[in-house]
Design a protein around this nucleic acid. Structure first.
Lengths: 247, 247
DNA sequence: TCTCCATCATACTCACGGGTAGAGATCCTA
DNA sequence: TAGGATCTCTACCCGTGAGTATGATGGAGA
């Protein structure tokens, strides 16, 4: 599969094989990428509006003012469209998870940073696809891929919670369930948020982070999970993977 | 379109008038109701497994070991099936909202009671339909109905939060956003919970309520939103560390 | 000017699935 | 035991929408 990137504004250039006889076609190649991105974005917007199953490829083509075969020229199937939209949304969260590792902050604040990005991603045009791309709608291999990406994020959040309990910046709680609750609250934004709302995605994300922060902060006078140096008796919860779908 | 027939507007089952000349056929009537419920339940289970659009009426019929026209004998359309499943799930939450009004408890505890029922409903076999019945998949009139029921619940939760802030049992927060966060976290359960999980629906609901409760409780030493004239019931922090696990 | 290739449209194929027609089977009442 | 109501079946219709075959267009290189 093509390893398309969501083309950040000032990001790195596409790696150009230096001594290719096709150098002249570079511009064309780039043009194609742009169009392809437009197709995926159009798909995301349509899925947003009407849902995956209620959106036909003709709808997507119409939004771009082209015809269906043109769409198929840039993408191999409707399923792939959904997948790409999913990846575009989720990539933002993954990179937030990675970057946060470098920060020297209490875990609760690092968690906040991740959740802020998470919230903004869910409120973005790809939010719907990110949240609703169900394994039922995808082939086995793509479904696996989606699940592993989701699981990766889930594990990152759990880890941050655990660390927060350990460093005392988060009050004691069950990391697995708490992660589910946080992610669920954010994911759900995609269900009620539409572009024409009064609040921007960033504002919503901020509001949610504020709520979470208020709820997770350790409470004065109550026992913390682990005093800075004391070996806390942590609940050794065998964290299972993301709920497996049987069969 | 679908609004031409005065078909019994789905909702509660109307108790048969006592002195009907058709008393003899009561049993039959009852039989029919039972079968109808079985159809709806079967639909819910299939939707659960494969999603609404990936489930055909043949699938539902097959689960019941009958054929498609039999299903249509009890229900007028696929859409109606989804709607009925939705209502079945949501009714539980609505009744919880009503009942809780009678309780003489701090608002936070009443909220907990509602959220517990909410969580259990979402983890039930109708949870998927309840949470995923999108307006996109329903006709205009049914969609309106769904939205109004959802909104009613949302308003109940917001009201409880407001009351909690007022009576000092919940620390100050934005009721609207907090309600979204709580409902979202619970709704999301329907995405990852499947019957074959290790935890029961009730256990999950309980775990979530515990998390919420910990996050919403007022914090010792911090200002509460309680009306100044009345003394806020300040629980000394030596109270309980975690919400009553088994009481 | 000719040719190759990328790009896009017209005009299809075809399976799936929601929904129906109409007839058989079964039970209740008279 | 007829006659009607209830229940379920077999066999079909047909719209929708994913995906395709094929050919037109237009620009780049020779």
């Amino acid at each position: 599969m093509s390893n398309r990137r969501p083309s950040p504004p000032a990001g790195g250039k596409t790696p150009a094989p230096a001594t290719s006889p096709w150098r002249a076609s570079h511009e064309r190649q780039r043009d194609r990428e742009l169009k392809r991105d437009a197709v995926i974005r159009a798909a995301a917007l349509e899925f947003n509006r009407k849902g995956y199953h209620n959106t036909s490829l003709d709808d997507i083509a119409a939004r771009l003012e082209v015809t269906k075969p043109t769409v198929y020229y840039y993408v191999t199937s409707k399923e792939q469209l959904l997948f790409e939209c999913f990846v575009a949304g989720v990539e933002r969260i993954r990179s937030a998870c990675r970057e946060v590792r470098r920060l020297e902050l209490p875990a609760r604040e690092r968690l906040n940073a991740v959740l802020r990005q998470y919230g903004e991603a869910v409120a973005s045009e790809f939010g719907w696809c990110m949240v609703r791309a169900e394994q039922d709608d995808l082939s086995a291999s793509m479904s696996r891929h989606v699940k592993s990406l989701k699981s990766e994020i889930d594990q990152s959040i759990r880890r941050l919670i655990r660390e927060g309990v350990q460093d005392g910046s988060i009050h004691p709680c069950d990391p697995k369930m708490t992660a589910f609750a946080l992610a669920g609250a954010l994911n759900w934004i995609a269900h009620w948020y539409r572009e024409d709302q009064s609040m921007s995605g960033a504002q919503i994300a901020e509001a949610f982070v504020a709520i979470f922060d208020a709820g997770l902060r350790p409470r004065a006078g109550e026992p913390t999970g682990a005093a800075p140096r004391r070996r806390a008796r942590r609940r050794s919860h065998a964290d299972t993977e993301f709920p497996p779908k049987s069969s």
